[in-house]
């Protein structure tokens, strides 16, 4: 019984991995690809690991630790990637309307902004 429930939970998780792979191909620029990619790392890996935990109850604690570590560390790298993408937004052809961050920077650095 546990095996079947766990297998379906893992299947639902891998469905989100598939959806975010489709999103990576379809989205137009780095920011939106990250948005699609966030799906894989959040609900995708959480459901996948939970499914393994349900299949093998002895491993549930270890899976919970993995989920907590993913939830704590994933936003840090996402944030660094988003900042880097924003610094290079012209070169990667990102379309942002409105861009409140550039407007804030533009107001302060109008003198030497190229």
């Amino acid at each position: 019984m546990n095996e079947i429930v766990g297998a379906f939970v893992s299947l639902a998780g891998s469905l989100f991995f598939l959806l975010s792979a489709v999103g990576l191909l379809r989205m137009p620029d780095a920011f939106n690809r990250m948005q699609a990619g966030t799906k894989a790392t959040t609900l995708g890996s959480i459901l996948f690991l939970l499914g393994i935990g349900i299949m093998k109850p002895d491993w549930l604690g270890r899976m919970v630790i993995l989920i907590v570590f993913i939830v704590l560390t994933n936003p840090v790298s996402s944030n660094a990637l988003a900042r880097a993408a924003h610094a290079h937004r012209k070169r990667i052809g990102a379309r942002l309307e409105p861009d409140a961050l550039a407007a804030e920077d533009g107001g302060k650095e109008a003198g030497h902004a190229g």
Partner: peptide, 10 residues
Amino acid sequence: TLTPGTITVE
């Protein structure tokens, strides 16, 4: 950042 659709940039 963890909820898809929104990412904290700065």
